[in-house]
């Protein structure tokens, strides 16, 4: 009998700590599948964020580094420069990549570092209890915007992917979503592209994933998926940005 669904070798056989319906688990698996498919498990090095995915290295079955909150791209820059034969990627939430780490993000991109960035946009700070993220939508209620985010004063949803796409050092930027299985497959194709770009030495590639956080959106997992499709996408349109 042919086995058509199995755990990728790049994923450990370990129960994860994510909430039901969370997008992090899907993203971890997609990365693991791609690592297997491209045959890079023995030379890939992941850099985990500070955020809900802080212990991503407990789930991935390959070398990983922790980075301080927001500094993943500084850490990854050095690893890749010293080990150009290795495939180095960062995995970062919106707070990590687009608030505390904006400087590291923009400058790594601007230097055209040959890196792959998986950017989980869940419009919220998950790990610390549902506070406003730079990507939180206008009107969205969070622990620190109890009456809903207002653009003036709180800031507007930050479109970091569009900003990065303006930089000459950046090779590829695409925004994808986990809203339904078809879109998950599209997301996988984009992530794969971002890894292949690095393997071919083409430079800085980033995939932004609209990823559900049912817990701090205060929704069921199903409603959270629909919200990424019906609401989030209006602010963050899908597709290839660069």
């Amino acid at each position: 009998m042919k086995k058509i669904f199995t755990r990728p070798e790049a994923l450990k056989d370990a129960p994860n700590h994510y909430c039901p319906g969370c997008g992090h688990g899907i993203a971890h698996r997609l990365i693991a599948e791609i690592v297997d498919e491209t045959g890079i498990r023995e030379r890939v090095i992941g850099v985990a964020p500070v955020g809900c995915a802080v212990v991503a290295y407990d789930y991935w079955n390959f070398d990983c580094s922790e980075a301080a909150h927001g500094r993943a791209l500084a850490v990854a820059t050095a690893i890749k420069r010293l080990r150009p034969q290795n495939i180095v990627f960062t995995y970062q939430g919106d707070g990590d990549l687009a608030a505390i780490g904006t400087n590291e993000t923009i400058h790594a991109a601007n230097r055209g570092e040959n890196l792959t960035v998986i950017f989980i946009n869940n419009a919220i700070y998950g790990m610390t209890g549902g506070q406003m993220a730079p990507t939180t939508l206008v009107g969205q209620k969070t622990a620190t915007t109890p009456s809903g985010r207002e653009g003036k004063g709180h800031g507007y949803p930050l479109k970091i992917s569009e900003i990065l796409s303006l930089l000459p050092g950046v090779c590829y930027v695409e925004r994808v979503s986990f809203q339904d299985p078809q879109h998950v497959l599209k997301a996988k194709a984009a992530i794969k592209q971002a890894f292949l770009n690095q393997i071919k030495g083409q430079g800085f590639s980033l995939v932004e994933i609209l990823s559900p956080c049912p817990t701090y959106w205060g929704m069921s997992p199903k409603d959270a998926l629909d919200w990424t499709r019906d609401v989030m996408q209006k602010e963050f349109p899908l597709g290839k940005i660069k």
Binding site: S65, A67, A68, R71, A74, V75, A78, I79, R83
Partner: peptide, 12 residues
Amino acid sequence: AAINMVYGASAA
């Protein structure tokens, strides 16, 4: 950024 790069370099 510089010190976090050093962290990465040393980790490598």
